[in-house]
């Protein structure tokens, strides 16, 4: 399923998108598959699958640690595409690839996109590929009918936001705070003001990520945005619990408790 279709479907039913980020291959490649399926089974709408990278400079300690474990376990781009091909046989729910640019660049942007198309994965977001560096990448996403998702942050000017809104497909990832990934308090009035302003310039859905770690935040943000993305909170839960008995059931419960 395409990201845009999923969001339209949710909108038609008056629902908000509940998205979860997990790094591919964490804690192991095999466990990763069960985790992604469990997320979908428990009400997650879109999974953002992170490609572990040696130098995750936009991530806080929780995701840094997880990606380093995943890399140590042999996670790489080829194995991720195999994984996606298998997952797609089990579920039609959309998966967005979230990555730093170098793993895509090293693979070859065209080869990477060909593989995405082959495994019917349309969504991709690249953390360190801002507007000014994205021209060639964007043209290629069009060639393969992909949905490139871009970021807008509190430091993005309104004229720049307008340009980003025009090229972002599926949804716009609004980063709630200046900073790296990881749990923190959010200031809703400021966030609401920024999202309201964005809504004036674009019809594209806006999902909010970074810092979200509790149900109350999800509810507050869903009052003005189209959905949320939760990463570190789930990743640290996996870190704590993955060796415990009944882990997948616990993970399901955790996800439901956040979604509310």
């Amino acid at each position: 399923m395409r990201i845009e279709d999923k969001l339209n479907q949710l909108k038609a039913n008056n629902q908000k998108a509940f998205n979860v980020y997990v790094p591919f291959g964490y804690p192991t490649i095999k466990a990763s598959r069960d985790i992604v399926l469990t997320l979908f089974d428990n009400g997650v709408d879109i999974v953002e699958l992170g490609i572990p990278f040696s130098d995750p400079l936009a991530d806080g300690p929780i995701i840094q640690e997880a990606t380093s474990v995943a890399l140590g376990g042999g996670a790489n781009v080829d194995k991720m595409f195999d994984f996606l091909a298998q997952i797609k046989e089990k579920t039609d729910n959309p998966i967005v690839i979230m990555t730093y640019f170098n793993p895509v660049f090293a693979y070859g942007v065209t080869s990477f996109f060909k593989k995405m198309k082959k495994v019917s994965c349309s969504g991709i977001m690249v953390v360190d590929l801002p507007l000014e560096e994205s021209q060639d990448y964007l043209e290629k996403t069009r060639d393969y009918n992909l949905e490139p998702i871009f970021f807008i942050t509190p430091t993005t000017s309104s004229s720049r936001a307008e340009k980003i809104a025009k090229i972002s497909r599926g949804f716009i990832y609004y980063i709630s705070v200046k900073g790296t990934t990881g749990p923190r308090d959010l200031v809703y009035p400021v966030l609401k003001k920024n999202i309201d302003q964005l809504k004036k310039i674009t019809e594209t859905s806006i999902c909010v990520g970074f810092g979200i770690h509790e149900k109350k935040q999800v509810q507050e943000i869903n009052k003005f945005a189209d959905g949320v993305i939760i990463g570190s909170e789930i990743v640290s839960f996996i870190a704590r619990e993955h060796k415990s008995k009944g882990f997948l059931a616990k993970l399901g419960k955790k996800v439901r408790s956040l979604k509310g």
Binding site: F101, P130, L131, E132, E133, F150, T153, T156, S157, I175
Partner: peptide
């Protein structure tokens, strides 16, 4: 103007830093 030396250089940073 874009910070390139031939095909090298550029500004490959997360959106928050583009402003900085």
């Amino acid at each position: 103007k874009r910070g390139y030396y031939g095909s090298f250089g550029g500004k490959f940073v997360p959106e928050t830093l583009s402003f900085c």
